[in-house]
Design a binder for these strands. Structure first.
Lengths: 363, 363
DNA sequence: ATGAAAGCGCTAACAG
DNA sequence: CTGTTAGCGCTTTCAT
């Protein structure tokens, strides 16, 4: 790979000016066909690849959108049983964003956040894109504040504005609270259950907390007693922990709950396995529900009743908001979308497959 | 977003030269702590975000690796039952590449290929990265040839060099032939099956053809008769088609096969459902196997015997090869890796869970 | 440890 | 339709 050819080389070789070479790539129609072919031929012979950097510098835009998400990966989780499921979340957002970005002519730059410092990946991403999306709590607030002064940023998931310095950002989330509420009402009203055990997350997560609020509200409205805290909080919400949680809740003193309401599907799937080992039948002996609607949830036996998050659409919406800021409406009022979720009533709560949509939207 | 501040603004505001501002970001230690803080403070106040473009242009490198993959998405497949599974393939490569790229300090730029023309996404990607991976048959050969003269390119999957003009590219594939061979031998030798029906793909795909070759070789060596062609070739290898294939093979004249050997997991899963509907028991009445090792394969009932492709590792390897070219060994001999696959012997062939690894590697 | 100056390769007016 | 001419914002010697 010796010195890469530039517009000058191509221009010289095809006997035109650099401006014409540039035109051939930017607006082919503005160049006479014969000339264009000469240029293209020269480019091919030379192995010319236009420099995105030079282009971006001169045109002040990159044609790239970005996504920053947290680094989920356990350092050496190689076998990766849970791993597959664990990353589905960001995988789906990536898929949605890539698809939507492509429709709008953008490519997608992705990076999981690393540690801080002035030279971290987030800063790098920010400098190379026209706008980007951030999964909540991935990037330090202060840094995001600085960046968002220069580039459109949309916040994904999490609460509207954890920090007032960020309230000018567009924002997309899913109806966590409402979804969990609806699911819980279903258990309460349609199945007549009363003793529900909620299994949440140890760390503070806005999404998971919203789900728990939905659970509590449903219980309260149905006159069912609930503590201020989930029955259990697990550290990572993995499948293994779900199994563990099921064991704890079954083995504990007092009456066994009638239903385990898990804050995500992975735990619920783990619980299903643990209960099977114990010889307990779902849903006859005990009802189990999840949250997320990962593909696996439909495939386990019994199929898992859960709340389906439209993660792919989340990604698509993010791109739409970015594109909107990038084209014209740069100064529009910040938008906050809440994507509706679907309650999938499946076998693990004793239903045949049914699904209803819930939640509300702006825009 | 008025005029974005540049090094000049930051320099002026902090009373240093632009060179110092640059140093603060590139090599913080080469600047006195007090100076550095002044610069960083000014940057923060101004909302300074270094331009990746200007940086890349000046330093001749982007710190970004790329991936181009085919556009799988059916335009309006919204419900997306199969969609989830269909994209798992590229999703996993993305995951593997992102992870490995991050370890090496790179971000990842992804784009599904669009149509041609001098200004397509592939060209765009090529111009914005230090090197990139291409899923076989995503990019026109000629275009790839031109680009690969200027940037390291690694070819993923597919055969070594479909085109001799591309034989200087690094290449990573999985042991398709050997994996299918081992799986088939298992059916033949350990389960004593004799009448196997192979279900492949209508379109010509190097990977799928390699699998079929493995199947044939196994049969031949075991003295089992096989035609030159699969029993069936389906157009898309979706779940629905798998179900359809099962129906065809059951309903057909002549003896029903003892085993359905599918070229991928999705079809096998579909077949499982179709067979259940027909009241046929797997593996007692009929054995079913897949290929890929998607997460679903472990979760269906009965769990699917299959060949596990290490897609995440494929992505990781791709990054390793790129990084190698990018650091020193630019002129090294082209490498061709074949990643070993694992035969997962599960319930759908009558085994308890077992797994063996097969295939060979270079490097 | 810091500054000065020369590009990096391209786009974008503006002429012609 | 095509050429000329300025930068775009940063890194990078080379001095100091």
């Amino acid at each position: 790979m010796n010195a890469a050819p530039t517009v000058y080389d191509v221009a010289e070789r095809s006997g035109v000016s650099i401006a014409t070479v540039s035109r051939v790539y930017r607006s082919p129609d503005s160049v006479r066909a014969a000339t264009r072919e000469r240029v293209l031929a020269a480019a091919r012979e030379l192995g010319y690849v236009p420099s995105g950097n030079a282009r971006g510098l001169a045109s002040r835009s990159t044609g790239v959108l970005g996504l920053c998400f947290p680094d989920y990966s356990d350092p050496d989780t190689v076998g990766a049983e849970d791993d597959d499921a664990a990353m589905l979340y960001s995988d789906q957002i990536i898929r949605g964003m890539e698809r939507a970005a492509r429709r709008h002519g953008y490519a997608l730059l992705i990076a999981a956040s690393l540690e801080g410092g002035p030279e971290n990946l987030v800063a790098k991403v920010a400098g190379r894109v026209d706008g980007f999306a951030v999964l909540a709590r991935t990037v330090p607030t202060e840094e995001l504040e600085v960046i968002s002064r220069r580039r459109p940023v949309v916040m994904l998931a999490g609460p509207r504005a954890q920090d007032p310095s960020l309230d000018h950002l567009d924002h997309v989330e899913v109806a966590n609270e409402d979804g969990q509420y609806q699911l819980t009402r279903h258990l309460l009203d349609d199945h007549g259950l009363r003793r529900l055990a909620y299994v949440g997350l140890a760390d503070d997560s806005p999404d998971v907390e919203a789900r728990f609020r939905g659970f509590r509200r449903a219980c309260r409205e149905a006159g069912v007693e609930t503590g201020d805290e989930p029955a259990l909080r697990m550290p990572m919400m993995t499948q293994a922990e779900g199994a563990h949680a099921a064991d704890l809740l079954c083995g504990g003193a007092g009456e066994r709950p009638e239903a385990f309401v898990f804050a995500n599907d992975q735990m619920a799937v783990g619980a299903l396995q643990a209960l099977e080992r114990r010889g307990l039948r779902v849903p006859d002996d005990i009802v189990v529900t999840g949250f997320d609607g990962i593909p696996l949830s439909r495939l386990v036996r019994p199929a898992l009743t859960t709340v389906r998050q439209p993660m792919v659409r989340l990604g698509e919406k993010a791109v739409e908001l970015l594109v909107r800021r990038l084209t014209g409406e740069r100064e529009a009022e910040p938008v906050s979308l809440m994507l509706p979720v679907g309650v999938a009533r499946r076998a693990s709560c004793g239903c045949a497959d049914e699904e209803t949509t819930t939640g509300f939207t702006d825009l």
